[in-house]
Design a protein around this nucleic acid. Sequence first.
DNA 1: TGCCAGCACTCTCTGCGTCAGAGCGCCAAT
DNA 2: ATTGGCGCTCTGACGCAGAGAGTGCTGGCA
Lengths: 344, 344
Amino acid sequence: MANETHALNERAQLLLKTLVERYIADGQPVGSRALSKFSGLDLSPASIRNVMADLEDMGFITSPHTSAGRIPTPRGYRFFVDTLLTVKPLDRVEINQLEGQLQVENTQKLVASASHVLSEITRFAGVVVTPRRSAGFRHIEFLRLAEKRLLLILVTAEGDVQNRIIQTEKAYTPSELIEAANMLNQNFAGCTFEEIRRRIQSELKQLREDMSQLMAAALAAGDQAVSDSAEDVVISGEINLLGINDLSSNMSKLRDLFNLFEHRATLLQLLDVSSRAQGVQIFIGGEAGLTPLDECSVVTAPYEVDGKIVGTVGVIGPTRMAYERVIPIVDITAKLLSSALTQR
Amino acid sequence: MANETHALNERAQLLLKTLVERYIADGQPVGSRALSKFSGLDLSPASIRNVMADLEDMGFITSPHTSAGRIPTPRGYRFFVDTLLTVKPLDRVEINQLEGQLQVENTQKLVASASHVLSEITRFAGVVVTPRRSAGFRHIEFLRLAEKRLLLILVTAEGDVQNRIIQTEKAYTPSELIEAANMLNQNFAGCTFEEIRRRIQSELKQLREDMSQLMAAALAAGDQAVSDSAEDVVISGEINLLGINDLSSNMSKLRDLFNLFEHRATLLQLLDVSSRAQGVQIFIGGEAGLTPLDECSVVTAPYEVDGKIVGTVGVIGPTRMAYERVIPIVDITAKLLSSALTQR
DNA sequence: TGCCAGCACTCTCTGCGTCAGAGCGCCAAT
DNA sequence: ATTGGCGCTCTGACGCAGAGAGTGCTGGCA
């Protein structure tokens, strides 16, 4: 007895499990009759009602109103995913399919396609935190577009390419441009932009005056690269959530949710948490502390480059989602992303 | 009499105008009493009812049901925007504000920010068709990332920068890379990729074998650049439309609308039409032939580079929108975009 | 001829009451 | 411990009446 208030006996667990499964499957509150049919146990609805009452007391399930069946509470979902859920790993076929849809041309495309694939395959919103990169300098190029217009191409240590068009006051000759680029490439390759800034500052007097605008532009582009490469969140398939009945019923909540999506910083904070732990993490309902996510769950997994965690992939969907399907998908996607990034 | 069935007399026009204005303002069907108060004419509701009946016969207005006021039909809106609407040009201040929010660093950012600004300022969805560019070759660079990994940087004639990481079979020396780049830069600058492909093919035998992989990669990147630079539609602020009562009432229509947004090709077709004409164009309701846009209007304006139309900007919002505000905004945005693009 | 007050009519919207259906809790019997 | 049975409660659908809004029409007036 005292036992039952803390731990669930096997029967209660089985019933909770089938209840959650049925609710996830058809979204209707589950009554004692249905449970008696589907649990596999040979119990009458009346007996089941007793157990259900206990489960309700313990806070695992609740009824929307007196004469409806029961639905899982967040706590019920939590227990379900933590100890009752049996995930079946993906088929080799599905993995290949997933892998085939990742576009490996460059990091941005890779991240974008990962997010897109997640949303396509789960039909929820896919989300990826872009890898954080320490912005070092590798290579620069000035390309003459017109008399006083240059295209500046900047490659960071991580192989990201930044480009911007700059208007110059003076018309540089091709050889001057090459000279400036060489000067930067030879002296500063491998440095951070902060270092470059310091060293240029101190050597400014020696610097030929007509070079200084080019240097300034280069540094500005560098700063841009740093800020661009700050962590960011890529979301796709938000539209899928419009189709989810659980969410689209109360319009104002839905609006809040989409507003959250626009508010990258908040989202980032949530997803960052998940990158502390290894493996798949699940946030159920408001567990993340964000009210717009009340009826949502977030399934995340960190991905890594060379053994170091650099970002997070995930799926945002209704709390009533098929976890046993979503979890392996997110897991594999993180692994695929890791390996695609490590190769480069 | 016969006159009235074709053209509207002044009184009818004024009443239609105030009716549309009032309906746009508060979204409620407008009754004869309200019209008599707000029209400025000194007429009793009863007289106004006669005119309204005529307007209804002519198809400019309709009533949702017997005892409601009248609302404009698409034809009513059409007449309104064509001949009754008085747009007030934007303040200098507003223009500056608009201009300040455009990010001119490079074409992609410019287009994205234009779309974003439109959505922010109108609180509807902003949409921009990216400029079509003939993809010519300008410059290429091979950068060694690791032994058998190169970063390929490709600059098109229009100054767009493509980059991709390639794995090579052979470990190239820096001087080989420079040689390959030089070879391409000197011989093919200004050519289309099609030309390059032909000429390389014909000279393939003379080409040192170890260079061919680099050439192939360069051409592949070029093709990518061509296809990437194909026209595309950038949408932002779709979420704003969630908040519009006219649209969010019937969920399924809203879904259709968002599906349309995902279906770039269809949207492109619609927006391309608008780039045939000069100046602001307005599509009301389903005039564009797309059912998901039934309750929407699209306000567009083409923008140009060096006097040649290269794309379209626009706003998608509910048919019940404040046209007199949206029209100048779209107009000015197109002009700002034109001038920003022409400068580069 | 144009305008308008008045009136009957129609339609929506709201609230109320009823009724069937679903499901529960409790209790007594096994 | 399990279970059949009974009464209770709540929802959702339905129908109905009354209020409110706005129209169309008619007949009178300048």
